[in-house]
Amino acid sequence: MAESPRKRNNAAGTAKLADIARQTGVSVATVSKVLNGRTDVASKTRKTVQEALRQAGYTKRIATVRNRRMVEVVFQYFDSLWGFEIMQGVLAEAREHGLSVITTESGDRRHPDSAWLDEMLHRQPLGVILMFANVTDAEKRKLERYRIPYVTIDPSGDPSPDTLSVLADNWTGGVLATRHLLSLGHTRIGVITGPDEMMCSKARFDGFASALSERGLTPDPDLVREGNFQTSDGYRHGLSLLKDPRKRPTAIFAFSDLEAMGVYEAARQLRLRIPEDLSVIGFDDVSTSAFLGPALTTVRQPLQDMARAATSMIIDRSNNKAVSNPLILPTTLMVRDSTCPPARRSDD
């Protein structure tokens, strides 16, 4: 009796797996684990076997979208209040749809490293949420091949029209913060930005400059510092801006609440009172901002709403529903206790 096609294929497949095992010096069971996306294989071994499988023409079976029950969130690093706000939003939306969530730290703010993509493809999530990062054309093609939609929150550059993205109205937020300081009488305003290449940072600075121009003013280059949205940058640049009493600003606009917290510490070390000697305004409205001493005036970007929207976009795209793109959510000025009119100088 002739052997059935199924048996012939299985026999050939086993033989090929044995060839891969001999070639890479591992067991057939290990090759099978790598092929099926098991996680209990050392990273170096997995990469070696993956390359051998690729050269042999093996491809991992693509799971049907219906069977995917996980959303993956990729951070540059997950060590800040900003990240926790994002995760709360993702978890809330995923829970309503019976989905689980996995987080990954990888690469930098502009781009995740290549190892992340291969590992993610083996996990085959329903979709991926990227913090800041964009993907290359080659990576887009891979994601499309595996039918894995992705959404970028606060993209680092100008995303292509076919890239799903969610962001806050950063330009308006920059305008609102600056108008508030101007309305109090501040004209000498220091700024601690985010990375120059990031779209959200550029938009906030453009809003800052636009609000100044309404009063016939322009940004003072001596009062502008490029930060990285981190507390350490707020502290370092805060000291730089405030150390000379003759040149220091009367207010500082920090482009993140974390930077603003660093400015608080710099002011404390220089024995400057907030807001009597220095007004400080932040951006984000993370959960602890209202509990600083004094409570931080800031621009609220709805981080949890942005994260929920990104998760919803993945779910809708996977179900072939129409998705509004890009999605821009409004920002709101939250006036608290860290801003007041500038004190009169002794030489006024």
Rank of each mutant, 00 (worst) to 15 (best):
M1G: 13
M1W: 05
S4G: 07
R6Y: 04
A12T: 01
G13K: 10
T14W: 09
A21V: 11
Q23A: 13
T24W: 04
T24L: 05
V31Q: 01
V31N: 01
V41D: 06
R46D: 06
R46F: 01
T48M: 12
V49K: 05
Q50R: 15
E51T: 15
E51N: 14
V65T: 13
R66N: 11
F78E: 11
S80D: 12
S80Y: 00
L81P: 12
M87N: 00
Q88P: 01
G89D: 10
E93P: 03
E96N: 13
H97I: 02
T103N: 09
T104W: 07
S106I: 04
D108Y: 08
R110P: 00
A115F: 09
A115V: 13
D118A: 15
D118V: 10
D118T: 15
E119D: 15
E119G: 15
L121Y: 12
G127N: 02
V128N: 01
L130R: 06
V135I: 15
V135T: 14
K140V: 13
K142I: 07
R147W: 03
R147Q: 14
Y150W: 11
I153H: 05
P155K: 06
G157F: 07
G157E: 09
D158H: 09
P159K: 07
D162T: 04
S165N: 11
V166W: 07
D169M: 03
D169N: 14
H180K: 06
L182Y: 03
L182M: 06
T187N: 00
R188D: 09
G194W: 00
E197A: 13
M199T: 14
C200Y: 03
C200Q: 11
A203R: 11
A203L: 11
R204D: 02
D206K: 07
G207L: 07
A209D: 05
A211K: 07
L212F: 01
E214K: 07
L217T: 02
D222W: 00
G227S: 09
G227R: 02
F229K: 02
L239E: 13
L242D: 08
D244C: 06
D244A: 08
I252A: 13
F253H: 14
A254Q: 06
A254K: 07
A254F: 03
F255Q: 14
A260M: 03
G262W: 02
R268N: 10
R271C: 00
R271H: 09
D277F: 10
V280C: 09
I281F: 02
D284Y: 00
F291T: 08
L292F: 15
G293C: 14
T297I: 08
R300G: 04
R300Y: 01
L303V: 10
Q304N: 12
A309Q: 13
M313K: 02
R317F: 07
S318K: 05
K321H: 12
N325K: 02
N325C: 11
P326L: 09
P326A: 10
P330L: 04
L333E: 04
L333T: 02
L333S: 10
T339R: 05
T339I: 09
T339V: 06
P341M: 12
P342W: 06
S346Y: 14
